[in-house]
Computed example of a mutant assay.
Amino acid sequence: MTSAVVAEARGAVLVVSLDRPESRNAITADMAQAVARHLDRLDESPDLRVAVIHGRNGYFSSGMDLKRFERTGERPLDPQRGSGGLAWVPPRKPIIAAVDGYALGLGFEMVLACDLVVAASDAVLGLPEVKHGLVAGGGGAMRLPRRLPRAAAMEMLLTGRPCAAARLHELGLVSQLAAPGEALDMAVALAAEVAAMDVDAVVLTKAIALESREWPESELFAWQEPRLSAFLDARRSAGS
């Protein structure tokens, strides 16, 4: 896997680091595929329970590598997990974004594909695609209106203006606000707290929280019941 994406296990927490300083962590196809393989490892390993993704060198990511796209048409996709290696199919287990500096374009779309966001108080996040005649097609145009009030999301999408992490914390997208330079440490601490919970319960809770957004309101409990019953049956069998 590319050296521009590095992963290390800290106990049950897998820390995935974007490390391409010459381009401010702009995402290439190789990087997207490396991120995806590390998330495959997260889902497959019984020793890993939560991932944290962050960018080294003081920033999360400047987005897709536009120079490569303009030169060769390369898009930063993984065939299975999609844009950035997680936008189409995030991992079953929880993933937390730790944002320092800025997360723009695809960088912000990768953040939006995470379950929790910890950001430094001086971080900046945004989707500037329209300024470049592009569309936030890596999940940004779809996910941002689900994570923010509609008016705030549409203003960011249609103007391309970035937003301060402190404001996104007020709006509920950023779950924890860290002091500058401390986002990773705070995110790893949060990940360790989640990792201490029962892994099967956490995985099912995440699945229900995400999938239920598409369930009919009048049938929420009916659609949840088979998943919950199977989980409880497995628990009883394991305890007998």
Rank of each mutant, 00 (worst) to 15 (best):
residue 238 A to Y: 04
residue 203 V to N: 03
residue 26 A to T: 03
residue 158 L to D: 07
residue 194 V to Y: 05
residue 119 A to L: 14
residue 141 A to K: 11
residue 200 D to T: 11
residue 139 G to D: 03
residue 217 E to C: 08
residue 119 A to M: 13
residue 195 A to G: 04
residue 96 I to C: 06
residue 162 P to L: 10
residue 83 S to M: 10
residue 206 K to I: 04
residue 155 E to F: 13
residue 57 N to F: 13
residue 135 V to M: 10
residue 180 P to S: 13
residue 181 G to K: 03
residue 54 H to Y: 12
residue 52 V to Q: 04
residue 167 R to E: 11
residue 11 G to F: 01
residue 207 A to M: 10
residue 119 A to E: 11
residue 239 G to Y: 01
residue 162 P to D: 05
residue 200 D to S: 11
residue 177 L to Y: 09
residue 12 A to L: 03
residue 168 L to N: 09
residue 81 R to Y: 04
residue 133 G to P: 03
residue 143 R to E: 13
residue 175 S to F: 01
residue 177 L to G: 13
residue 156 M to T: 07
residue 148 L to I: 14
residue 147 R to Y: 05
residue 73 G to S: 03
residue 136 A to Y: 02
residue 210 L to F: 06
residue 104 L to A: 13
residue 107 G to I: 11
residue 125 L to N: 06
residue 8 E to P: 00
residue 16 V to S: 02
residue 115 D to G: 10
residue 98 A to K: 08
residue 222 A to F: 01
residue 191 A to I: 08
residue 231 F to V: 00
residue 215 W to V: 07
residue 112 L to V: 02
residue 68 R to Y: 01
residue 119 A to K: 15
residue 166 A to C: 06
residue 11 G to Y: 00
residue 187 A to I: 08
residue 78 D to I: 00
residue 58 G to K: 11
residue 130 V to S: 05
residue 187 A to R: 08
residue 134 L to T: 03
residue 83 S to C: 05
residue 209 A to C: 01
residue 198 D to Q: 04
residue 118 V to T: 11
residue 233 D to Y: 05
residue 228 L to G: 05
residue 97 A to W: 00
residue 47 D to T: 15
residue 91 P to A: 15
residue 123 A to L: 06
residue 101 G to E: 01
residue 14 L to D: 09
residue 144 L to E: 12
residue 106 L to C: 10
residue 199 V to K: 01
residue 39 L to I: 14
residue 201 A to R: 06
residue 170 E to V: 14
residue 203 V to Y: 00
residue 43 D to S: 12
residue 96 I to F: 02
residue 228 L to I: 15
residue 106 L to G: 07
residue 143 R to V: 09
residue 213 R to C: 08
residue 206 K to F: 03
residue 39 L to V: 13
residue 168 L to P: 05
residue 4 A to E: 07
residue 210 L to G: 04
residue 110 M to C: 12
residue 39 L to K: 12
residue 75 R to H: 01
residue 102 Y to W: 06
residue 82 G to E: 01
residue 20 R to F: 07
